[in-house]
Design a binder for these strands. Structure first.
Length: 592
RNA sequence: GCGCCCGUAGCUCAGCUGGAUAGAGCGGGAGCCUUCUAAGCUCUAGGUCGCAGGUUCGAAUCCUGCCGGGCGCGCCA
């Protein structure tokens, strides 16, 4: 690598790391007994205190273990060779501290160069941080639910988290497909059809209660109203003859009502999810997995195909009049029924066919996001996936999201599906707005339960994190607008002609630049740890860092070079805030 | 009984593939608007990282046991 390339590469945090890595490899490979080339990556951290330098790395500690060298000596050699060589242009001095930390003190030139580099990248700063060899075609299935009633707050969490994860994965370099699995098959749907039949009858003045184990919510009355608008009294005779027992409605009629109701609920899903800014690429119907194609014991389509394949591989057995999958061969604690005594398939069978089909569609990696109430299902899923080609359970990843508690006036609101007392996603959006829903729902790690404080979410103050971050963005826009007005000129010149020269960089600017430079690492962490909440936390930090900078450094100042540099910092911060918010599905307002 | 998740400041939580004196927000206390948005900023108090062992030069982080809380444990979905 030429000096010039090397110098340009040093503009980013990860570039610094790679440069240090090359020096480290040179040191190690010069040893009498060279170690294996698999060195840990040089991880740069922002030290906790300014005395520890601008950036810092514990890499000598990790490598010392492998090489048997004294970590402080190794850190010192790395510091000396790098600062005298590749790092000479950007590093003023280094210190070895504690057990073997290498602390680097960077020059003003590095800060200016890093800022110029980020401006040149614009919205692409942080894009494609994933190395090419780790990029995959990923399918993420989330929200998936049976279309029997409105989406509730739990779904809002999985939808927000799943979509944010999709945006992050795609930005980092994966090829992402968002998939919604519609559980429109099985006994729950039968109950749904009967429940709708009852509501339809009620609207026509025929006494027919919703079955005890049916869907009691009022929303089915609205669905029934629309049904009547469309079909009038077409089913009156059939329903009246069955009254008052909804389960006695003739199967053909119940089927038609169920199908109509399914479509009505699905339309509402699409509408809700669109408002929530969650765009699904693929909707797969469970029922459709049973249609067409090859057959196995009367099962067609994808389900028949999956059964045939498992049977050929000797994974199935008959017992107690049912057909089972021997999941205990792959770590499950009991075997699982696929075809019941009655001949009806289980939900698990559908899921096998579904996941087999997803692999068939050429995805390198599958992710399912489920609620905690389904976590008991994980071992059999892993077992099933091991039984199916390519027999690699690592390629199916199950993310279990914990529950959501709604707090009103500080107390938890208990919801009951049976009472029909649920807070829907639509209710939530209406109450606090899409931005607050999206931002709050990714505030916590997925395996932590989440308390959503409804009073806080609508509060327009710095206590409310979403306003705090959005305000920072709006504030920058305002500053830049003033600048445009006062100078009557361009706010943002073409990136590659950014005019500022190297200036003296103060402590507030330094902190802001380093926080901005961390953005690609945050994207990478959020992707690798499947933790969109890391972006949420980062945006809070970046906003805070900007507010401090803003309070202490006037952008519109007499010194033209300083003003240009600070304007550049504002532009870079605005771009980064906007990108981070976008990755979480939150808007970045120009003014507030 | 078994399985998964959680247990860190008064509250809500980050940090967990081992690294420096454990962080943030809210809440408590004290301040800051003639200056680009005070929806902001500064300072301050507050912690045996549930408990007990173990591994390690080094443990909130890894291992074992225990305690407390949440969620599951259907030929429901």
């Amino acid at each position: 690598m030429s000096d010039r390339e090397d110098h340009e590469e040093l503009n980013g945090l990860s570039g610094l790391g790679r440069s240090l890595e090359r020096t480290l490899v040179a040191i190690i490979s010069g040893e009498p007994a060279p170690v294996e080339p698999a060195l840990p990556p040089v991880e740069l951290t922002l030290p906790p205190k300014p005395e520890f330098g601008d950036v810092s790395t514990p890499v000598a500690l990790a490598v010392a273990r492998q090489t048997g060298r004294n970590p402080r000596e190794l850190a010192d050699e790395l510091g000396r060779r790098w600062c005298a060589g590749p790092g000479a242009a950007v590093c003023e001095r280094f210190e070895v501290a504690g057990p073997g930390f290498l602390n680097l003190f960077l020059s003003d030139g590095w800060y200016c160069g890093a800022t110029r580099a980020m401006l040149a990248l614009g919205g692409d700063h942080g894009r494609g941080v994933l190395p090419a060899e780790r990029r995959q075609k990923v399918n993420i299935e989330f929200v998936s639910v049976n279309p029997t009633g409105p989406l509730h707050v739990g779904h809002a969490r999985y939808a927000s988290m799943g979509d944010a994860l999709c945006r992050l994965l795609a930005f980092a370099g994966h090829e992402v497909t968002r998939e919604f699995y519609v559980n429109d098959f099985g006994s729950q749907m039968v109950k749904f059809g009967q429940s709708l039949a009852a509501r339809y009858a009620q609207r026509l003045g025929i006494p027919m209660p919703v079955p005890d184990d049916g869907y009691q919510g009022d929303y089915l009355l609205e669905v029934a109203d629309r049904l009547i608008d469309e079909v009038g009294e077409r089913y009156r005779a059939a329903v009246a003859a069955a009254a008052p027992d909804a389960t006695r409605v003739p199967a053909e009629v119940a089927d038609e009502l169920r199908s109509w109701g399914r479509d009505a609920i699905l339309a509402r899903f699409r509408d809700t999810l669109q408002r929530l800014r969650v765009p699904f690429d693929v909707w797969t119907s469970e029922a459709s997995l049973y249609a067409g194609g090859a057959t196995f014991r009367g099962f067609e389509g994808e389900v028949g195909k999956a059964l045939r394949e498992l049977d050929d591989d000797g994974e199935l057995f008959d017992a107690d009049g049912a057909v089972w999958l021997r999941t205990t061969d792959y770590g499950d604690d009991k075997d699982r029924v696929l075809i019941r005594q009655t001949g009806a398939p289980t939900y698990f069978l559908s899921d096998i066919a579904y996941h087999r089909d997803k692999m068939d569609r050429g995805f390198g990696h599958l992710i399912d996001i489920w609620g905690a109430d389904h976590h008991g299902y994980v071992p059999r899923m892993k077992a099933m996936f091991t039984a199916l080609p390519p027999h690699d359970p690592e390629r199916l990843e199950l993310i279990i999201g914990q529950m959501v508690n709604l707090l009103e006036s500080g107390v938890a609101r208990r919801m009951s599906k049976r009472r029909g007392d649920i807070v829907t996603v639509d209710d939530l959006i209406e109450a606090i707005g899409v931005d607050a829903v999206r931002f709050f729902m990714v505030a916590r790690s997925h395996d932590s339960t989440l308390d959503l404080d409804l009073d806080l979410a609508v509060e327009q103050s710095s206590k409310n994190p979403v306003y705090y971050v959005q305000y920072a963005h709006a504030r920058i826009c305002s500053v830049l607008a003033n600048l445009t007005r006062e100078q009557g000129g361009e706010t943002a010149p073409p990136h590659d002609e950014w005019p500022f020269a190297d200036v003296v960089v103060g402590p507030y600017e330094r902190n802001l630049v380093r926080t901005l430079a961390r953005f690609p690492l945050v994207v990478l962490e959020a992707v690798e740890r499947r933790g969109p909440h890391r972006m949420h936390a980062y945006l809070g930090e970046l906003a805070a860092e900007f507010h401090v900078f803003y309070r202490n450094c006037r952008v519109l100042t007499d010194d033209a070079e300083v003003a240009a540099f600070r304007t550049g910092l504002c532009v870079a911060t605005r771009t980064t805030l906007a990108k981070g918010l976008e990755l979480l599905g939150v808007s970045a307002p120009q003014s507030m």
